[in-house]
């Protein structure tokens, strides 16, 4: 068996057994948060990594999912999870609306346009009473049934998130091997050459964005279900978009497990600094993000995936 397969199986086993092995609720919670971050970063990875279109506005889809679940609860008393399909539908509409004009832009201009769109949505949500304006929305204060999926223990969340993450990674794996995976790689390699070979560039970017937005929205719903609260900062803040980019880039954008690896590194780091420095930890968060951006941009644009490949191939050479 090759080293990649062993590492993958071992890693997935650790993640699957984590909440059963550690009993401290703090660590269990960190585990669930790692998976949640891995879902949104892996979703971002579909368009940002595989498609090479660096969106820094993905929080709109996350926010759509989070808000949809708490709106269906506050308006109609539905369980928050029931907001998931609505969040996905809104995200698909938003993705088509944002993607169609912005995909014509190149590089930094595309990224900036996505930031602008997301900030616009955040400002609108801060002033709209349906979304609770600046105050935000609350979930069910006490669970009414299991359908509210409201637990004090992080363990059920861990397994719900794991199931969604595995589904997403499986779809990504299928995509990567299919025509769509090749077309996205070609688009990343150069629009002009791709088009000359018959690749409908805009269409495939849009497919990737729609899939990406759906799962980012799902991550938002899962977040709202777990935390039971969303406001413009926690559901639509630009920092969340940046975090998706950083996690994916740190682990390796455009690779299957890169975002998961990035989440495994970043989220505990963030939680540890928050725990150590209390509420003032957010300032530290920025420093950590900045350091990672510098590290990835300056030394290793391929992220940990490249470092891993270098390490494992060196072993192979030595063995030979």
């Amino acid at each position: 068996m090759n080293i990649n397969r062993i590492a993958t199986i071992a890693g997935l086993l650790i993640i699957a057994l984590w909440p059963l092995v550690v009993h401290d609720v703090f660590y269990q919670r960190v585990g669930a948060l790692v998976l949640l971050a891995a879902i949104s970063a892996s979703a971002w990875n579909l368009i940002g990594g595989y498609g090479g279109q660096v969106s820094v506005g993905h929080v709109v889809y996350f926010g759509a999912g989070a808000y949809a679940s708490l709106i269906v609860f506050t308006r109609w008393g539905w369980p928050p999870l029931a907001g998931a399909p609505i969040g996905v539908a809104v995200s698909l509409a938003l993705a088509a609306l944002v993607g169609t004009p912005t995909f014509r832009l190149r590089g930094h201009y595309f990224s900036m346009a996505t930031i602008a769109a997301a900030e616009l949505v955040r400002i609108l949500a801060s002033n709209w009473d349906v979304t609770g304006a600046a105050v935000g929305l609350m979930g069910p204060p006490v669970p009414r049934s299991v359908w509210d999926f409201s637990f004090t223990s992080p363990v059920p969340y861990h397994y719900l998130f794991l199931a969604v993450l595995l589904l997403l990674l499986w779809l990504t794996w299928l995509m990567q091997r299919s025509k769509m995976g090749f077309y996205l790689a070609a688009i990343r390699g150069g629009d002009r050459a791709a088009r000359s070979l018959g690749v409908p560039v805009l269409r495939y970017k849009l497919y990737a964005l729609l899939l990406s937005a759906s799962f980012t929205s799902l991550a938002g719903t899962l977040y709202a279900v777990m935390v039971g609260f969303v406001d413009p900062e926690s559901g639509l803040g630009i920092l969340l978009s940046v975090k998706m980019v950083i996690i994916a880039a740190l682990g390796g954008a455009g690779t299957l497990f890169g975002p998961l690896v990035g989440a495994v590194i970043l989220v505990p780091l963030e939680e540890a600094t928050n725990a150590m420095f209390g509420g003032g930890g957010t300032g530290i968060t920025f420093i950590v993000y900045g350091a990672i951006i510098l590290f990835v941009a300056r030394f290793q644009p391929g992220g940990m995936a490249v470092i891993w490949r270098a390490l494992t191939s060196r072993r192979k050479n030595r063995a030979a």
Partner: peptide, 22 residues
């Protein structure tokens, strides 16, 4: 260009543009 390709016209570029990472 993609419609041209579908119709059956293909080309090379003066400065080659291969997909480097593939």
């Amino acid at each position: 260009p993609e419609q041209h390709a579908r119709l059956g016209m293909a080309r090379s570029f003066q400065v080659p543009v291969t997909f480097e990472d593939m």
